[in-house]
């Protein structure tokens, strides 16, 4: 699989997450930023707060850089777009502003080549898909596509070392689920590993 390797030198990598309330788009953005922090990067992670309710479309953002980050505005021209729910692709205009050499990563069963054709995306955009919902259902026992997508995101951006991220995420999950190692932490980590392996373009 062709992998894009971001060279952060002086640049800010901007990511936009699309999900539905309850799917964990914000949590994923925060986890991704916290993991990146451990590699010495400057980070931002923040959601766009609208009406907050289960199922409503939500957006969250990441900025990663090797220099202090200035802007606090929402990301309008992302290099990477991550979609937690394929039903949002058209209504939430997920590809709006996506850079011409950007990456679209979607939680779907759809073939990435088909998806790219269907959306009429520019040649330079790389589309990746992974069935993160199925992975989550099989490993965690419920449809929480956010953590597996972290594995896929690291694979397609290579902005972080995979094992560094896994170590960071394990620590964060241990904080979150005190004493739930077998029940929550291991299944989540396994789902991230699987998405890392199963993402395709």
């Amino acid at each position: 699989m062709a992998e894009v390797c971001f060279d952060l030198a002086g640049q800010v990598l901007e990511i936009r997450w699309h999900g539905r309330g309850g799917q964990g788009a914000k949590t994923a953005a925060l986890l991704f930023a916290e993991s990146a922090l451990d590699t010495g990067m400057f980070i931002q992670a923040f959601p766009e707060y609208g009406p907050e309710r289960m199922g409503a479309p939500v957006v969250a953002f990441n900025r990663l850089s090797d220099k202090p980050i200035g802007s606090h505005a929402a990301v309008r021209a992302p290099r990477v777009v991550v979609v937690l729910d394929p039903s949002l692709i058209e209504p939430a205009q997920v590809v709006k502003g996506l850079q011409e050499d950007g990456i679209l990563l979607v939680n779907t069963t759809e073939d990435p080549v088909e998806l790219k054709k269907r959306l009429g995306l520019p040649e330079g955009v790389t589309v990746y898909t992974v069935d993160a919902s199925r992975i989550a259902l099989e490993e965690v026992g419920k449809d929480v596509p956010n953590t597996p997508l972290l594995g896929a995101l690291v694979k397609v951006t290579r902005v972080l070392e995979f094992e560094t991220m896994m170590k960071a995420i394990e620590e964060k999950l241990a904080d979150k689920f005190r004493g739930g190692k077998e029940k929550f932490i291991e299944p989540n980590l396994k789902s991230i590993r699987r998405a890392y392996q199963e993402v395709r373009c």
Partner: peptide
């Protein structure tokens, strides 16, 4: 600190 812009923004 600016509400949401900083209060809910994770930074280093």
């Amino acid at each position: 600190i600016d509400g949401f812009i900083l209060s809910h923004c994770m930074e280093r």
